[in-house]
Structures are given as C-alpha cells and as structure tokens.
Amino acid sequence: EQLTQNVLKSYHETCQLRAEDLQRRRWDTFSREEICAYQKKSMEEMWQRCAGRITEAIQHVVEFAKRLHGFMELCQNDQIVLLKAGAMEVVLVHMCRAFNADNRTVFFEGKYASAELFRSLGRAEDLIGSIFDFAQSLCALQCSEPEVAFLSALVLVNASRPWLQEPVKVSRLRRRLELGFQLLLRRTRREGLLDRLPPQGRLRALCSQHVEQLQALRRRHPPALLDAFPPLYRELFA
C-alpha cells in the first residue's frame, strides 16, 4: 500500500501535463496555416524542436525516478543504465495521455497535431507513424492515471537491461512494483489489462528506430548540426 502511494505521488508530482488539461484541450488542433508553417520548417529545425520537447519530457521522467522508493538506493551506474534505456520508453507510454485517438493527434507545442505536421522531419515520417500507431493501441486500453503511473515505473525498473551492476537489487525492486500493480488492478477489477499490454519489444523497437533515424540524420549533415540539440538529448541518444 505504501509503495502504491509512493508511485502515485511520484507520478503526480512530476507529471508534465495534467490529464484534465489534456482532456479539456483534446479538440484544440492546429489550423491549416499553422500546419503549413511547421511543414515549411527545415528538417534540422524540426528535429531540434522535437528533440527539445523530448528532452523536457525526459527531465520529468528523471524526477519521477528520483522520487520512486528504492530507485536512489540502487548504485549510480544502475540508475544511469535504467534511465538511459528506459526514459524514452516512459515518454512514449506517457504519450497515450496526450493523444486523441479519435482524430489521431498528439499534444505538441501547445495544441494537438496530426502526423502530417511532422512532415519536414523527412525520412523520420515512418517513425512518426509507428509512434502514432503505438499511442493509438495504448489509448485503446483506456488506462487510468494510477495505471500509467505503475506502467511508467515498471518500464523504468527493468532488471534485464544490459550493463546493470546489481541486477538482483533491480529485480527485487521490480518485484515489489509488480505486486503493487497487481493489487491495484485487483482492487479496480482490471486484471485483464496485463494480457492486453503491448509487448515490451514494441517499445524497444520504437526507441531503436528513433536512434537509427538520428544516426541517419548525422550521416547526412555536418557534425555541428547536433550542437543545437539539447545537451541531455545528445548525451542519451547521440
């Protein structure tokens, strides 16, 4: 019970956008002119913008991790390993809250945006399509806020990440989180959710696709391109 309260409190304290606000604004979409303005941006500028928004979201995930009971008791190496491998995955899970499945739009820079707004990202368009599909499939599960909180913690605390120094300790923390999640699901009669969650490999594949697209961008542009990207983003993905 204590662990559940801690997961929920950590999640609420570090949530970037409140669910009520996202719901209230879910039909506030970009106008045709605004979409065209985004489409006219250079590929470099659009990448930088997206990297900026991803980095902001990741900073919230780091704060969430720091508040999770047991996370800061892991060795520093393992804290970094878990965040490096899992932060982007958590951001993708959180995206289902900021996604309107009825018109396939996502909250981006103040309004809801369709996939076409990201056209200037160039070849990364496939990646955008895959991310939208993932958000759509997660939205279909209609997860509550406490469920998203636990899913975030479980994506992060994963004992099978490579390069962990103390996987047993991570595994023990994960087991406690799993128990807390099961109790929550039992209490809310949502046990079926566990069988309907997308396979973990799907999140991993999306993250690999993101890094591959970034590498392709770097191959096509001078190294100075990345200088304009947020330092934390470069550290994690470049």
Binding site: E63, I80, L83, P231, E235
Partner: peptide
C-alpha cells in the same frame, strides 16, 4: 558510465526539484 553521462548524473545528484 557516470563520466559519459555527466548531465544525467548531475540531474540524479541534485535534490528533488
């Protein structure tokens, strides 16, 4: 690993903000 991830390491070291 901490050396290669100085920013992340620093964020983790800072108190809850």
């Amino acid at each position: 690993l901490q050396e290669k991830h100085r920013i992340l390491h620093k964020l983790l070291q800072n108190g809850n903000s």
